[in-house]
Design a protein around this nucleic acid. Sequence first.
DNA 1: CAATAAATTTAGACTTGTCTAAAAATATAC
DNA 2: GTATATTTTTAGACAAGTCTAAATTTATTG
Lengths: 218, 218
Amino acid sequence: MILSLTEENYLKSIFHLSDNGQTAVNTNHIANQLNTRASSVTDMLKKLADKSLINYQPYQGVTLTAEGRKKAISIVRRHRLWEVFLVDKLHFGWDEVHDIAEQLEHVQSDALTDRLADFLGNPVADPHGDLIPDKNGEFEQTKFIPVDQMSTGHTGIISGVSEHSVSFLQYLQKHDLVLGKHIALLETTGFDGSVTLLINQSKELTISKEAAKNILVL
Amino acid sequence: MILSLTEENYLKSIFHLSDNGQTAVNTNHIANQLNTRASSVTDMLKKLADKSLINYQPYQGVTLTAEGRKKAISIVRRHRLWEVFLVDKLHFGWDEVHDIAEQLEHVQSDALTDRLADFLGNPVADPHGDLIPDKNGEFEQTKFIPVDQMSTGHTGIISGVSEHSVSFLQYLQKHDLVLGKHIALLETTGFDGSVTLLINQSKELTISKEAAKNILVL
DNA sequence: CAATAAATTTAGACTTGTCTAAAAATATAC
DNA sequence: GTATATTTTTAGACAAGTCTAAATTTATTG
Ligand SMILES: [Mn+2]
Ligand SMILES: [Mn+2]
Ligand SMILES: [Mn+2]
Ligand SMILES: [Mn+2]
């Protein structure tokens, strides 16, 4: 079944808001994420339910069906593959690629997606450390730890971010907190939760708890 | 001004049907090309005229304005660059790329287009020999000759096709009549206009006048 | 558990792009 | 040059997706 661009965006939104399809998602959350109104969401939920892509009981929120989840994952796969392309091949910055990938993700061609993945070397993560599902929709199993949950003295490799705003990405870039960097947690301030890091065994930097929470290490 | 996917397709259609924007285009021609109805076309022509993208006088056909032509050319540029990407980088066949490029051409980002062009080495022609306008909308000046207009004994390099159907492209592929091949015209049959070619100084092949008309040499 | 608050759905309208059928304009033919 | 055929436009309707405002359901709270 072929989906409209709008239907694809709703499915992707539900997928992300439900933490990969586990929990039920509210109408208002979807409206908020898609910058639309609750009434518009209700209308679309009915359509998606008619197509058996979501489980929808009025007033009870929605979950994805197996079919809906499959569709959502394939959109996520396309989005992240294109982000890799934009950064690795076209040399865009990691803060510049999301909006373009939002458009590219809607190009519907399995042959294109698969060849693109091959061309990029079948990457398992995008430029922000987000995992790229494989052709069968499977994510590699990993356990990222947010920096604010690291213990003093422990070390890790920056492997992802859980906040994707342009301003946050530019902030990280400026302080050299990019994917692949080695960090050691020197100290956590009890007062405000800010943490002091040693980056690549050389540079010290103190960041807020808020920032630490959104940097993921392995 | 940002255009909808549909508006982009109408502009592109008018551009192609008017031989790059020179002559006036009829309502019915557009309807035919876009697989829609004349009445739908009339509606859209009014909208495009309101936006100063076309010159439209009821019953008199349309031409592109300078602005409309600029938009159309930028869509053509994106289409052909993506076709190069699909063939050169993702190894699709020249008969497989058009439909995917029809989708990719609508991704709107000048930065993307320019970086893609750089990545591909700023090609001047797509996999079918169609010229790719540069960033400023200029086409390289060339004078293709259709094979049916070559004189006996003359030679040329296959540089383009003027018919893009999948079946014709596959026919050419099968007989090794692809871009870059050297051909010599051995003989033209007066009877039906079919021509006998020598391909790459080695293989002889007779093709119909219809086929010859759609193969372009330099 | 009754009263209020919050979330969700319904009702009705609007935009974009499309269609069929009918009317109007233009082109062609005798 | 009038009749006929073709092309184009108008009129009215429809589907997708959205919105505001009102009604309804669920949640909270004293
Ligand atoms: Mn993204
Ligand atoms: Mn990403
Ligand atoms: Mn093409
Ligand atoms: Mn082409």
